[in-house]
């Protein structure tokens, strides 16, 4: 605070009275307006921050689900118990996060924060992959939306109980779920999630083929799982559908869909990656036919460092 200011005549300006601390914003006619706007903007920024945080956690959990699922070796009705347990535990965590997220992304805010909600793509990827491993089919958007809504409701359930306890009426539980806000799925979340699914299927096809010596298909799963009659029928008239055909179908789906106008760049990139995945699985199928015919039935590569894969098949 040394020195002093001069006015344009060169006379030292006198400070009238002690000045308020320097950073105390000068108030003028517009200050109240800006203070209002600040409060509104802060609300938006804070909400976005919370969404981004939850989204990051959901993404991480979804990726862990996918890693667990990649330890599955064949397509069958039931995931192996240990893997199912891992998946369920992660899903329970995701449900809690979704429940916390749900009120923030209602109505107009759903698309406002769409870019901060990329976790939903990852979650779609995990859920569609799990569904594929169980049924060898692609779950549709209409089937998947209620699943995610259910998840957000489940995550909210404990809170509801607390709320109900606080209120007079404990029997109100039955009505509560109807009002619970849920996270809705957009078509883009779904499509981009399914794009990523092709990558996971490619990885699954590669490992399962390498470790079991057969192309993954529900027919193969049926033989091991005990659907004996059905499997025998399949052998007679046609080979069971394998993952190669499934990849082709998925690839065709995306090739035939019109390019989503929202983000042509991302679409193009995803499509390119999907094409590569399809071709990698094609190559696998080819190798199985050419070299597979030379290897004795039941032969699997000797992967002493590998996991349980060989043991199951050799008996």
């Amino acid at each position: 605070m040394s020195g002093f200011k001069r006015d344009w005549n060169g006379n030292a300006k006198k400070r009238d009275g002690p000045r308020p601390p320097p950073k105390q914003a000068v108030r003028n006619a517009y200050t109240p307006m800006f203070e209002n706007l600040r409060n509104e903007l802060d609300e938006h920024y804070d909400r976005r921050e919370r969404i981004v945080k939850a989204s990051r956690d959901i993404t991480a959990l979804s990726k862990k689900i996918i890693f667990s699922l990649q330890r599955v070796r064949k397509i069958e009705n039931q995931l192996p118990a240990n893997i199912q347990a891992e998946v369920d535990a992660r899903l329970a965590e995701i449900a809690k996060l979704l429940a916390a997220l749900a009120p923030e992304v209602q109505g107009i805010n759903r698309y406002r924060y769409a870019r901060s909600l990329l976790c939903l793509e990852e979650l779609v990827e995990a859920l569609t992959f799990a569904h594929y491993l169980r049924t060898q089919t692609l779950v549709s958007l209409a089937e998947l939306s209620p699943v995610i809504e259910d998840l957000s409701r489940k995550g909210a359930a404990p809170e509801d109980e607390v709320m109900a306890d606080a209120g007079v009426d404990t029997a109100g539980n039955a009505e509560k779920p109807a009002e619970t806000p849920t996270v809705s799925l957009t078509q883009d979340d779904y499509l981009y999630g399914v794009f990523d699914l092709t990558g996971e299927m490619m990885r699954f096809a590669t490992t399962s083929t390498a470790l079991t010596g057969t192309m993954a298909s529900s027919g193969a799963g049926g033989q091991a799982g005990g659907g004996g009659a059905a499997a025998a029928d399949d052998d007679d008239d046609e080979q069971p559908r394998t993952i190669v055909q499934d990849m082709h179908e998925l690839g065709t789906l995306f090739e035939m869909l019109p390019v989503a106008a929202g983000n042509r760049f991302a679409w193009g990139k995803k499509l390119e990656v999907a094409r590569q995945s399809v071709q990698k699985v094609e190559r696998l199928g080819y190798d199985r036919i050419i070299r597979g015919s030379e290897r004795p039935k039941g032969w699997v590569p000797d992967l002493s460092a590998a996991d349980q894969g060989p043991g199951d098949e050799l008996e």
């Binding site: 049924t135 060898q136 089919t137 692609l138 549709s140 958007l141 209409a142 078509q187 499509l191 529900s218 027919g219 069971p240 559908r241 055909q245 499934d246 179908e249 998925l250 789906l253 035939m256 869909l257 019109p258 390019v259 989503a260 106008a261």
Partner: peptide, 17 residues
């Protein structure tokens, strides 16, 4: 076994896009 992709699904996705 059901087909990999429900035939109706493509139509739904396409019309939305």
């Amino acid at each position: 076994a059901p087909p990999m992709i429900d035939p109706a699904l493509f139509g739904e996705l396409k019309s939305k896009i």
